[in-house]
Design a protein around this nucleic acid. Structure first.
Lengths: 184, 184
DNA sequence: GGGGCATGTGGGCATTGTCAACATACGAGG
DNA sequence: CCTCGTATGTTGACAATGCCCACATGCCCC
């Protein structure tokens, strides 16, 4: 067969790790055409399987999107953790902010899927957990900076500021450099 | 015919103001089921016309979504203008912020359509204009507060803070009251 | 080595976006 | 008043998609 896809693998009939291949294919669709372009049948085509094979791994298209979003939250968490480990003291929060912004800028489609409300977190426990973990990482560092009485409010403000900047970047309302300059 | 829809009107064949009816129907679909639920055929059904009638008013499903988003930006601008007129001096910015948050909270689906990247502003001039006007209203008031050298940066910060809070509210990460408490 | 079960296949159905051809009515100009 | 052009709406069709069903295949455990 000409043009064997990179997402194929394993034997002819049993794929080997179709779930991962489908996610990889779907990520490519997501990044190149947005959430609308993520199609079970197209992902199956890219993975070199029949149009119904994905249903052995994802209950529905929504479940596939949820998996993509969860993957995004896990990646975001890794990014935040790394940034947090490389900085110390008062620099730490700004480092997290920069990491957050760079994540949004580097993978706008995934960021929008994560926060666009297309997938309902309540319906996908895996997603909810990944999302909670990522937010936890951010909240911890935010709260550690300010231990006074108004910590709660300040933490929320910092979070909202970064989140808003990230959305503006993802929507191309401002560019990433200008957004980074806004972090105190 | 039983169950005449509120979106119908005019004579039997020629509807009268189908464009407006379609937008109203689509808004209902948007609010009750999100952007995914906005369907040309369902909107046509609600308006009591054939499945192809909408094409006389919208070139594509995307054009209909763009019209909904533009309508949203116009409503946001009206809301911001009213809020700005009712307040004076330093209170003015906070009033705009509250209006912004309430808009996002009251019509989460429309807010997400406006900022979710589902419709490409570049492809719909009407949308781009409405969006620009709404942002202009916000930016003017933001910039008026701080006329020092760092006005640009402070304006962007204020905008991002409100925008981030609005997204968090729309995604139900925090509730509207907590968000409003964050506005200085 | 045989059977159970996870995994993949093929066909089918309803829904949708979009195109093309046709039908109808409103309004301007005679 | 009539007629004809054009805006508006209708019917029919096609491909793509999500999802369901019955069936095929092959890996693993007994």
């Amino acid at each position: 067969m000409w043009a064997l896809s990179t997402y194929e693998g394993g034997t002819a009939y049993h794929h080997g790790d179709l779930r991962r291949s489908l996610i990889a294919a779907a990520q490519e669709l997501l990044r190149s055409g947005g959430a609308e372009a993520v199609t079970l049948r197209e992902a199956a085509r890219l993975a070199g399987v029949s149009h119904n094979a994905p249903y052995r791994h994802f209950a529905s298209r929504d479940a596939l999107l949820a998996a993509l979003a969860a993957e995004g939250f896990r990646a975001l968490r890794r990014t935040l953790d790394e940034a947090g480990n490389r900085a110390e003291g008062p620099e730490r929060l700004a480092a997290l902010g920069r990491a957050y912004l760079r994540f949004a800028d580097a993978d706008r489609a995934t960021f929008r899927l994560m926060f666009g409300g297309v997938v309902e977190k309540a319906a996908h426990p895996d997603l909810a957990e990944a999302s909670g973990a990522a937010f936890g990482a951010l909240r911890n560092v935010v709260a550690e900076r300010d231990t006074s009485g108004g910590a709660e409010r300040e933490a929320l403000r910092a979070w909202a500021l970064v989140h808003g900047l990230a959305h503006l970047v993802a929507d191309r309302q401002i560019d990433a450099a200008r957004a980074e300059a806004c972090l105190s």
